[in-house]
Protein backbone atom coordinates (compact mmCIF):
# COMPACT_ATOMS: atom_id res chain seq x y z
CA UNK A 1 0.00 0.00 0.00
CA UNK A 2 2.83 2.43 0.77
CA UNK A 3 4.25 1.58 -2.66
CA UNK A 4 0.90 2.45 -4.23
CA UNK A 5 0.71 5.66 -2.17
CA UNK A 6 4.20 6.66 -3.37
CA UNK A 7 3.12 6.23 -7.00
CA UNK A 8 -0.10 8.18 -6.39
CA UNK A 9 1.86 11.00 -4.70
CA UNK A 10 4.24 11.17 -7.67
CA UNK A 11 1.39 11.18 -10.20
CA UNK A 12 -0.40 13.82 -8.10
CA UNK A 13 2.70 16.01 -8.04
CA UNK A 14 3.16 15.79 -11.81
CA UNK A 15 -0.55 16.24 -12.54
CA UNK A 16 -1.24 19.05 -10.06
CA UNK A 17 1.89 21.10 -10.64
CA UNK A 18 2.48 20.09 -14.28
CA UNK A 19 6.08 19.77 -13.18
CA UNK A 20 8.55 16.98 -12.55
CA UNK A 21 11.25 19.12 -10.97
CA UNK A 22 13.14 17.23 -8.29
CA UNK A 23 12.26 13.88 -9.87
CA UNK A 24 15.01 11.78 -11.45
CA UNK A 25 14.08 10.46 -14.88
CA UNK A 26 16.91 7.97 -14.54
CA UNK A 27 15.40 6.43 -11.40
CA UNK A 28 12.00 6.29 -13.12
CA UNK A 29 13.49 4.56 -16.16
CA UNK A 30 15.24 2.06 -13.90
CA UNK A 31 11.93 1.27 -12.17
CA UNK A 32 10.23 0.73 -15.54
CA UNK A 33 13.03 -1.69 -16.43
CA UNK A 34 12.74 -3.37 -13.00
CA UNK A 35 9.03 -4.08 -13.38
CA UNK A 36 9.25 -5.11 -17.05
CA UNK A 37 11.98 -7.67 -16.31
CA UNK A 38 10.54 -8.95 -13.01
CA UNK A 39 6.99 -9.56 -14.16
CA UNK A 40 7.82 -11.80 -17.11
CA UNK A 41 6.03 -14.43 -15.00
CA UNK A 42 2.72 -12.68 -15.81
CA UNK A 43 2.67 -15.06 -18.77
CA UNK A 44 3.68 -18.23 -16.90
CA UNK A 45 2.55 -18.16 -13.23
CA UNK A 46 -0.77 -17.14 -11.73
CA UNK A 47 -0.61 -16.26 -8.03
CA UNK A 48 -3.77 -14.22 -7.40
CA UNK A 49 -5.97 -11.59 -9.03
CA UNK A 50 -4.49 -9.04 -6.59
CA UNK A 51 -0.94 -10.02 -7.58
CA UNK A 52 -1.69 -9.78 -11.32
CA UNK A 53 -3.46 -6.42 -11.01
CA UNK A 54 -0.59 -4.95 -8.95
CA UNK A 55 1.96 -6.12 -11.50
CA UNK A 56 0.01 -4.44 -14.29
CA UNK A 57 -0.38 -1.26 -12.20
CA UNK A 58 3.36 -1.07 -11.47
CA UNK A 59 4.30 -1.63 -15.13
CA UNK A 60 1.70 0.84 -16.46
CA UNK A 61 2.40 3.58 -13.90
CA UNK A 62 6.19 3.43 -14.31
CA UNK A 63 5.88 3.61 -18.11
CA UNK A 64 3.35 6.46 -17.83
CA UNK A 65 5.70 8.49 -15.62
CA UNK A 66 8.65 7.96 -17.99
CA UNK A 67 6.42 8.92 -20.93
CA UNK A 68 5.28 12.08 -19.11
CA UNK A 69 8.81 13.19 -18.24
CA UNK A 70 10.13 12.54 -21.73
CA UNK A 71 7.20 13.41 -24.01
CA UNK A 72 4.67 15.67 -22.26
CA UNK A 73 4.97 19.12 -23.81
CA UNK A 74 4.67 21.03 -20.50
CA UNK A 75 6.00 18.53 -17.94
CA UNK A 76 9.25 17.75 -19.73
CA UNK A 77 10.34 21.41 -19.58
CA UNK A 78 10.62 21.24 -15.76
CA UNK A 79 12.93 18.21 -15.78
CA UNK A 80 16.23 19.00 -13.98
CA UNK A 81 18.38 17.46 -16.67
CA UNK A 82 21.60 19.12 -15.51
CA UNK A 83 21.22 17.79 -11.96
CA UNK A 84 20.22 14.27 -13.04
CA UNK A 85 23.60 13.08 -14.22
CA UNK A 86 24.03 9.82 -12.32
CA UNK A 87 25.63 7.16 -14.55
CA UNK A 88 22.69 4.78 -14.34
CA UNK A 89 24.04 2.50 -17.08
CA UNK A 90 26.61 1.26 -14.58
CA UNK A 91 23.81 0.18 -12.26
CA UNK A 92 22.18 -1.77 -15.11
CA UNK A 93 25.46 -3.36 -16.14
CA UNK A 94 26.46 -4.23 -12.56
CA UNK A 95 23.04 -5.75 -11.80
CA UNK A 96 23.18 -7.81 -15.00
CA UNK A 97 26.63 -9.19 -14.20
CA UNK A 98 25.56 -9.99 -10.62
CA UNK A 99 22.37 -11.70 -11.88
CA UNK A 100 24.44 -13.88 -14.22
CA UNK A 101 26.64 -14.90 -11.28
CA UNK A 102 24.06 -15.11 -8.46
CA UNK A 103 20.58 -16.47 -9.28
CA UNK A 104 18.23 -19.21 -8.15
CA UNK A 105 18.19 -21.05 -11.47
CA UNK A 106 20.00 -20.58 -14.77
CA UNK A 107 16.95 -19.77 -16.87
CA UNK A 108 16.13 -16.56 -18.76
CA UNK A 109 13.22 -15.81 -16.44
CA UNK A 110 15.16 -16.41 -13.21
CA UNK A 111 18.14 -14.35 -14.38
CA UNK A 112 15.84 -11.46 -15.31
CA UNK A 113 14.12 -11.85 -11.93
CA UNK A 114 17.44 -11.65 -10.04
CA UNK A 115 18.51 -8.73 -12.26
CA UNK A 116 15.32 -6.84 -11.38
CA UNK A 117 15.83 -7.45 -7.65
CA UNK A 118 19.42 -6.14 -7.75
CA UNK A 119 18.49 -3.19 -9.95
CA UNK A 120 15.56 -2.22 -7.73
CA UNK A 121 17.86 -2.15 -4.71
CA UNK A 122 20.01 0.49 -6.42
CA UNK A 123 17.42 2.31 -8.55
CA UNK A 124 16.82 5.04 -5.96
CA UNK A 125 20.44 6.27 -6.14
CA UNK A 126 19.99 8.75 -9.04
CA UNK A 127 16.94 10.17 -7.20
CA UNK A 128 18.83 10.58 -3.91
CA UNK A 129 21.77 12.22 -5.70
CA UNK A 130 19.41 14.62 -7.47
CA UNK A 131 17.76 15.60 -4.17
CA UNK A 132 21.12 16.10 -2.53
CA UNK A 133 22.28 18.33 -5.39
CA UNK A 134 19.16 20.49 -5.42
CA UNK A 135 19.22 20.80 -1.59
CA UNK A 136 15.63 21.94 -1.21
CA UNK A 137 13.11 19.15 -1.53
CA UNK A 138 9.53 20.13 -2.33
CA UNK A 139 6.85 18.62 -0.10
CA UNK A 140 5.37 16.07 -2.53
CA UNK A 141 8.78 14.87 -3.74
CA UNK A 142 9.84 14.32 -0.11
CA UNK A 143 6.64 12.34 0.61
CA UNK A 144 7.15 10.33 -2.59
CA UNK A 145 10.67 9.22 -1.60
CA UNK A 146 9.55 8.56 1.99
CA UNK A 147 6.70 6.23 0.98
CA UNK A 148 8.93 4.51 -1.58
CA UNK A 149 11.48 3.77 1.16
CA UNK A 150 8.81 2.84 3.72
CA UNK A 151 7.41 0.14 1.46
CA UNK A 152 10.75 -1.68 1.43
CA UNK A 153 11.17 -1.30 5.20
CA UNK A 154 7.76 -2.99 5.65
CA UNK A 155 8.95 -5.87 3.47
CA UNK A 156 11.64 -6.62 6.05
CA UNK A 157 9.00 -6.93 8.79
CA UNK A 158 7.01 -9.18 6.47
CA UNK A 159 10.02 -11.45 5.85
CA UNK A 160 10.64 -11.79 9.59
CA UNK A 161 7.00 -12.82 10.01
CA UNK A 162 7.18 -15.31 7.14
CA UNK A 163 10.43 -16.76 8.43
CA UNK A 164 8.68 -17.79 11.65
CA UNK A 165 5.33 -18.84 10.16
CA UNK A 166 6.31 -20.74 7.00
CA UNK A 167 7.76 -24.22 6.71
CA UNK A 168 10.38 -23.43 4.12
CA UNK A 169 11.27 -19.78 3.87
CA UNK A 170 14.40 -19.28 1.81
CA UNK A 171 14.66 -16.17 -0.29
CA UNK A 172 18.00 -14.77 0.59
CA UNK A 173 18.51 -12.97 -2.77
CA UNK A 174 15.39 -10.87 -2.14
CA UNK A 175 16.11 -10.42 1.57
CA UNK A 176 19.74 -9.30 1.25
CA UNK A 177 18.87 -6.97 -1.65
CA UNK A 178 15.90 -5.61 0.28
CA UNK A 179 18.04 -4.83 3.30
CA UNK A 180 20.59 -3.04 1.06
CA UNK A 181 17.73 -1.16 -0.62
CA UNK A 182 16.31 -0.02 2.72
CA UNK A 183 19.75 0.90 4.07
CA UNK A 184 20.25 3.32 1.16
CA UNK A 185 17.31 5.33 2.53
CA UNK A 186 18.78 5.62 6.04
CA UNK A 187 20.25 9.05 5.47
CA UNK A 188 17.09 10.35 3.79
CA UNK A 189 14.88 8.94 6.58
CA UNK A 190 17.05 10.67 9.16
CA UNK A 191 16.56 14.11 7.62
CA UNK A 192 12.90 13.37 6.89
CA UNK A 193 12.18 12.67 10.58
CA UNK A 194 14.19 15.70 11.71
CA UNK A 195 12.15 17.97 9.47
CA UNK A 196 8.93 16.25 10.61
CA UNK A 197 9.86 16.63 14.28
CA UNK A 198 10.78 20.29 13.88
CA UNK A 199 7.81 20.90 11.60
CA UNK A 200 10.25 22.38 9.10
CA UNK A 201 10.83 22.07 5.38
CA UNK A 202 12.85 19.02 4.36
CA UNK A 203 16.42 19.99 3.57
CA UNK A 204 19.31 17.72 2.77
CA UNK A 205 22.87 18.78 3.56
CA UNK A 206 24.96 19.33 0.46
Amino acid sequence: MTHLISILVLLLKIYATKSCSGISLKTQELYALVFLTRYLDLFTDFISVYNTIMKLVFIASSLAIVWCMRMHRVVKRSYDKNLDTFRHYFLILGSLVLALLVHEKFTIQEIFWAFSIYLEALAILPQLVLLQRSGNVDNLTGQYVFFLGAYRAFYILNWIYRYFTEQRFSRWIACVSGIVQTALYADFFYYYFISWKNNAKLQLPS
Partner: peptide, 10 residues
Protein backbone atom coordinates in the same frame (compact mmCIF):
# COMPACT_ATOMS: atom_id res chain seq x y z
CA UNK B 1 8.46 -32.16 -1.88
CA UNK B 2 9.95 -30.89 -5.14
CA UNK B 3 7.21 -28.35 -5.64
CA UNK B 4 8.14 -25.66 -8.18
CA UNK B 5 8.96 -22.39 -6.42
CA UNK B 6 7.20 -19.25 -7.68
CA UNK B 7 7.95 -15.64 -6.79
CA UNK B 8 4.84 -14.66 -4.86
CA UNK B 9 6.10 -11.21 -3.84
CA UNK B 10 5.80 -8.07 -5.91
Amino acid sequence: SSEEKVHDEL
